[in-house]
Nucleic acid binder design. Sequence first.
RNA 1: UCCUCGAUAGCUCAAUCGGUAGAGCAUGCGGCUGUUAACCGCAGGGUUGCAGGUUCGAGUCCUGCUCGAGGAGCCA
Length: 462
Amino acid sequence: MKRQRISDLLARPEAGGDVDIAGWVRTKRDSKEIVFLNVNDGSNLAGIQVVVPRDAACFEDARKLTTGASVAVSGRLVDSPGGKQRFEILASGLRIYGLADPATYPIQKKKITLEYLREVAHLRPRTNTFGAVFRVRNTAADAVHRFFQERGFVWIHTPIITSADAEGAGELFRVTVLDPASPPRMDDGRVDYREDFFGRETYLTVSGQLAVENFCSALGNVYTFGPTFRAENSNTTRHLAEFWMIEPEMAFADIHDDMDLAEEFLKYIIAVVLRDRAEDMSFLAERYDPELLPRLEHILASTFARITYTEAVEILERSGRPFQFPVRWGMDLQTEHERYLCEEHFMGPVIVTDYPMEIKAFYMKQNDDGKTVRAMDILFPGVGEIVGGSQREDDLEKLVSRMRALGMREETYWWYLDLRRYGTHPHCGFGLGFERLVQFLTGMSNIRDVIPFPRTPKNADF
RNA sequence: UCCUCGAUAGCUCAAUCGGUAGAGCAUGCGGCUGUUAACCGCAGGGUUGCAGGUUCGAGUCCUGCUCGAGGAGCCA
């Protein structure tokens, strides 16, 4: 069957011609004389109005339709006399694929909360809000690849199942095929994972970074963009057990190149979404967050402030603010500190660099002062930390001594350490949670509303 | 994991001091109109999250549990 996308029809310069569409009925308004349908095929926010006059052969069929039904419509694209749309379809033919019983169909026309829609997550993409969010998400994901591809970065598909714990970042989900009721055991009673599928303990990845560093050491500039898993018992609006992460890695580059890349990257994604998803963005701004578009435009227009951790601590100490967690050199910045820096002091994005070594991961390059590392976090107004990155330690001895200090087993990381043994080089990269980016782009306040089927503690429905 | 708040019709919410559980939307039926959150009329719809307790009487007070939301921590 031939089918035209509604967004393409609405983009035409003028009305006229026979058209065929198919989609789902959003609303119906009918009378004895005429039926008005709004049909949406997912290609845009507004859908298109279908008009079925009484003398049309399909009039009685049209009267049967209710919200949620699926139909194909053929007719003529005509100028709409009504005020709210440019074109509409004067129907001559109509095929019903499936009705939707209005007594039980959960998506009603008015006032449905986001919490309720999470309980019917399989149907929520049929709402205006989730249609808009997931079109924006798609555009952002495409822009991620375009950004890196245009700059010659090579996309590396790092493994989902891993045996190494990168930096101890969060709790791990175990991957096993052993019978949980009666696993094979060793003499001392511990589970014998030598009998397991991989012959050892394995987990879902918490980060593709260590793997992508390997490819950086051969292909130059690389990135990963894929799913990541954390078994943390985090119940917040910004955490998921399964989320997508973007992790670029650049060879022969330092922390300043890293900051430049991250700033350019964020502005690129924002600009593409504002340009290509204007209708959806306007809807989200109107419905949820009037400051959304100005805030994004502000990011585009600003140069990210760049300060060291030590300077950040001085600013916070001088602020005179009675923070719940008093500021002290050596502690990690709390949410309230990050918000003060970018929302009140700098009034815009801030990049904080050179954090104390003790609060950062083992692989970050140590500074000459012996106290700090070449880390960089980008803080955004409203969301806090959106990017975390660093220059990596490329000196074998320093890396090994740091790992020993943290009690890490060198044998586990022999392949990672080989990068420093053979042709080591300065390199850097950063990590970015894709859903947090989509949250910032759409203004959605809960991260569970920017991923199709959220996985959170006690919830893996659908 | 911690703190706070919440759970009443399909959905969103009311219910005064502890005293007969209501409305809007949705649904059904009817009407009307180039309508667009359509409109007008009528009707049906409830074990007030679960389990106990106090009381003549509990949606309301008490205890425990479950689930949800917001904040914090952890982090991306």
